[in-house]
Structures are given as C-alpha cells and as structure tokens.
C-alpha cells in the first residue's frame, strides 16, 4: 500500500500540466467493470457520464465524471456474508506525463449492507445497513476507447476491508 501511495505521489509531483485535448477521455458515457477474476472476491460495475473541462489559466485540460456504482466484496469472510453497496461517485481525472495516463480522484456516497445476498436478497434478511462515504484516488491508463484503472479506496464502513481495486472500462 505504501509503495502504491509513493508511486502516486511521485507521479503527481513530476507531472507536467499540458493542454492535450487528444489525451482526454471523450465526452459521453463511461462504463467501469471489475469481475471477480480481476480482484479476488470482489465485483464492481459503474456507469456514468464524463465531460471535458479546462483550467484556462494553465491551458490544462482534464475530465470530470459522475457515475452510479454497484459493488460487492467478500474478501476474507468465513461467515458466508457479503458486503454490498449502491451509490454515486463524482470526481476528476487529470492527464499526466504527456501520456494517456490520468490521476483519478473521486468522492462518493452509497447505501451499504451486510447480507448473504446483498444485491438480490430480501431486505428483512439484512444483517447490518450503513450509509457509506468514500474517497478514492488512483491511476487510469487509456487505450481508447478502453481503459484500465488502479484505485486506492477508503470508506467509513468496516464491512469493506479492501483498499486496492483494479478494473477495466470503456469510454464512448
């Protein structure tokens, strides 16, 4: 985890502002997906919208996004329970190093539950429910129209013990 944060810090510090329109994600839809084969015992699906923005003073273009997010996590659980959440995330993606590499930072709000079947189960069988706030930071590398992401996430809910999440996505 420390190595990941150091890499992130290094990348930010040595990044150069640039106006590289072609590097930015195109305005439109954004789908982000992480099946359990990518992260063990974890599932994620996100759908949202992305727009292009610019810091005019520096002529620095970046992307802003908002998405709906659904995820499920059952890492290190021996009680046959899973943690699930449904909510929204909003954030920005800054291009770095004159490559289609982005620093991605986001905040989010969700409703979470601890349940045997957190997505399709019955409400009255919920073990615990919590309102969740999250913060995440990470990197996104664009292949156009697809991309891959590596994210470090923290939340206020103890059901979720995982911090590093890998995912793939498409921008169209």
């Amino acid at each position: 985890m420390k190595a990941f944060l150091q890499l992130l810090l290094f990348t930010i510090v040595f990044s150069l502002p640039l106006k590289a329109e072609e590097l930015l994600l195109r305005e439109g839809s954004l789908v982000n997906f992480a099946p359990p084969v990518i992260n063990k015992d974890y599932f994620l699906f996100e759908y949202g919208f992305v727009v292009r923005k610019e810091i005019k003073k520096w002529k620095y273009g970046y992307n802003a996004f908002v998405n709906a997010s659904l995820w499920e996590d059952w890492k290190n659980r021996s009680d046959n329970l899973r943690a699930g959440a449904l909510g929204f995330k909003a954030g920005v993606m800054f291009p770095l190093l004159k490559k289609p590499l982005f620093y991605r930072v986001a905040g989010g709000f969700a409703k979470s539950v601890l349940h045997k079947n957190p997505i399709l189960g019955k409400d009255e069988q919920s073990i615990s429910k919590k309102t969740l706030f999250l913060f995440e930071a990470g990197l996104l590398y664009k292949f156009d129209p697809t991309f891959v992401t590596a994210t470090y996430q923290v939340t206020n809910v103890k059901f979720f013990t995982r911090h590093i999440i890998l995912s793939v996505g498409v921008n169209y």
């Binding site: 409703k111 539950v113 957190p118 399709l120 189960g121 919920s126 429910k129």
Partner: peptide, 9 residues
Amino acid sequence: GIRLDMPIN
C-alpha cells in the same frame, strides 16, 4: 427507477 438502497429495490 431504483431506490438508493441495498439489497436493490
């Protein structure tokens, strides 16, 4: 629509 709640509703 969908309610912002889990399990999904």
